[in-house]
Computed example of a mutant assay.
Amino acid sequence: MADEDRALTEDEKKARKKADRERKRQEARDAAEKKKRFALTPEKKRKLRLLIMKMATDNLKGEQQKRLEARKNFIEQRLKPLDDLSSMSDAQLKSLCQDLHNQLKATEENRYDFELKVRKQDYDINELTIKINDIKGKFVKPSLKKVSKTEQKLNKIKKPKEDEPNFINMANLKQSTNKFALKEEQAEEEKINFRDQVQLKSAKEHKEEE
């Protein structure tokens, strides 16, 4: 009986191990299927990209339309429609022109004030950014001047390197050595001619003595 119970327990252990393996395999298959279902294939990526681009263009168009409407409303509030000019007298036309001139003058003054305010804000932002970078220890790269590579190459060609031999000086040296060689050859020829002359002179004197 004890052997049968032990055999049964071993069979149960094997069955449990087998069931665990099957369960893990099933879980792995389910996870792979789920991942495959929600994975972004190239086709899904392309469709998602197109959808994002379409949404972005729609948002930009909506913002642009809102800006145009706000600008139109602002202009309509500031610029009131003119009355019938044909029914106005000269004095009324002069007063209307004066009012329009004053309105234009006030608008230009406001525009100048706003531009000056924006410039001051930009300057303050730049100064604060520099201070923050100094505190953090970050170095702002200065704007460097662009230099064309062709100019650098030409400058390198113009400046002879110390290691490279100067072919012009070598050519001059060769020419100078050739000149000296020619002079030496001429001197040797003159020496030979002088000896011949001495020999001829001595031969003539010997004949005269005979």
Rank of each mutant, 00 (worst) to 15 (best):
residue 3 D to E: 09
residue 5 D to P: 14
residue 8 L to Q: 03
residue 9 T to P: 04
residue 9 T to S: 13
residue 11 D to M: 11
residue 12 E to V: 00
residue 12 E to N: 03
residue 13 K to H: 08
residue 17 K to P: 02
residue 22 E to K: 09
residue 22 E to V: 04
residue 23 R to G: 15
residue 24 K to W: 14
residue 24 K to H: 13
residue 26 Q to F: 13
residue 30 D to C: 03
residue 31 A to V: 03
residue 33 E to Y: 07
residue 34 K to H: 15
residue 34 K to W: 14
residue 35 K to F: 09
residue 36 K to E: 04
residue 36 K to Q: 03
residue 39 A to L: 09
residue 42 P to A: 15
residue 42 P to D: 10
residue 46 R to F: 07
residue 49 R to N: 10
residue 49 R to T: 15
residue 51 L to I: 08
residue 54 K to I: 10
residue 54 K to T: 14
residue 58 D to T: 15
residue 58 D to Y: 12
residue 58 D to S: 12
residue 58 D to E: 08
residue 59 N to G: 02
residue 63 E to T: 11
residue 64 Q to S: 09
residue 69 E to F: 03
residue 70 A to Y: 06
residue 70 A to T: 02
residue 71 R to A: 07
residue 79 L to M: 14
residue 80 K to F: 10
residue 83 D to K: 09
residue 83 D to W: 11
residue 85 L to T: 01
residue 85 L to D: 00
residue 87 S to H: 02
residue 87 S to A: 01
residue 88 M to D: 00
residue 89 S to K: 12
residue 90 D to G: 05
residue 90 D to P: 04
residue 91 A to I: 06
residue 96 L to V: 09
residue 96 L to W: 10
residue 99 D to E: 14
residue 101 H to V: 02
residue 101 H to D: 00
residue 104 L to T: 00
residue 107 T to M: 14
residue 109 E to T: 06
residue 112 Y to C: 06
residue 113 D to T: 08
residue 113 D to I: 07
residue 114 F to P: 02
residue 116 L to T: 06
residue 118 V to Y: 12
residue 118 V to Q: 08
residue 121 Q to M: 03
residue 124 D to I: 05
residue 124 D to H: 10
residue 125 I to L: 05
residue 131 K to M: 00
residue 131 K to F: 05
residue 131 K to Y: 02
residue 132 I to M: 06
residue 132 I to Q: 10
residue 133 N to K: 01
residue 136 K to D: 03
residue 137 G to V: 01
residue 137 G to W: 00
residue 139 F to R: 01
residue 142 P to E: 03
residue 147 V to N: 09
residue 148 S to K: 13
residue 148 S to W: 10
residue 149 K to T: 03
residue 154 L to C: 01
residue 157 I to W: 04
residue 158 K to A: 13
residue 164 E to N: 12
residue 166 N to V: 13
residue 170 M to D: 13
residue 172 N to L: 10
residue 177 T to R: 14
residue 177 T to L: 11
residue 178 N to Q: 14
residue 181 A to W: 05
residue 181 A to H: 07
residue 183 K to L: 08
residue 186 Q to C: 08
residue 189 E to Y: 06
residue 189 E to D: 04
residue 191 K to P: 01
residue 193 N to D: 09
residue 193 N to H: 15
residue 194 F to L: 14
residue 196 D to K: 13
residue 202 S to A: 09
residue 202 S to K: 09
residue 205 E to A: 11
residue 205 E to V: 11
residue 207 K to Q: 02
residue 208 E to H: 00
residue 209 E to N: 00
residue 209 E to T: 02
